[in-house]
Amino acid sequence: MRALRNAGLVTGALIVGAAVAIALFAPLLVPHDPFAQDLSRRLIPPFWMEGARAGHPLGTDQLGRDYLSRLIYGARISMLIGIATTIASGLIGIALGVAGGFFGGRVDDAVLFAITARLSIPLILVALAIVSVVGSSLTVVVMTLGLLLWDRFAVVARVATMQVRNLDYVAAAWAAGCSKGRIVLREILPNILSPLAVVATLEVALAILLEAALSFLGLGVPPPLPSWGLMIAEGKDYMFFSPWVIMIPGVALFIVVFGINLLGDGLRDLLRTGRVA
């Protein structure tokens, strides 16, 4: 139970766990319909400020929608984008990295070229270009980010595969007559999963931030979906008189990304010291 003694890991896991739970049970948790507008109740401040009203603990936005409800539904969008993007980019990156590390030679050259090419692409710019051409929807955002964020997976999978490929138990598997596919799937993949798990947590955080950035620029998930980035974008016109409309989603974003990074760091420490010979 070394995991419980790692404060960062525990904190991170609690934050991420809470975020996931909130996302999953959003319909049960919200006090109001996050899409219901009420122009007579616009820009009510949150509970700690003067003028707060019962029933809207975090106030309302410029259209009179309950801010807490939108924040809770926003967690759904963020977690969904973070996880779906990471799965898509993980599949691409791990496939490329393992192929390069396992086959070496020309395949590896091609993979390295792809990684270098990907690293020289400006993320936000290309994402913006794609979304503005194809049109914005949740699926497009996930696919775009998935196609752009596989580089770290590929780099880590490639190096880990190269290390594992030369270990004795892989040689033993060859000697036992295993085929290439079997060696990759049964011998190599399970043994490179721990570094990849760490990469995955970092990618979830990155994807959430990128989605917020895209939404802020107006090319992420389309309104009226309550994405945190979109909430900040919509609130920016009111920030001088009602700063909470950008503060609240900003803080939520910060806490979730911070929690995921804590979890990733803790996981890395745990897996590094927990390795058995």
Binding site: D168, Y169, A172, A175, A176, G177, S179, N191
Partner: peptide, 24 residues
């Protein structure tokens, strides 16, 4: 060859500590 290996001819290695897959 892979049909022969492990079936009619088998091999054991020097390092027993690393010759087994830790994942299974």
């Amino acid at each position: 060859m892979s049909r022969l290996r492990g079936d009619r001819m088998a091999m054991i290695f020097q390092e027993p500590m690393t010759s087994l897959n830790p994942a299974y």
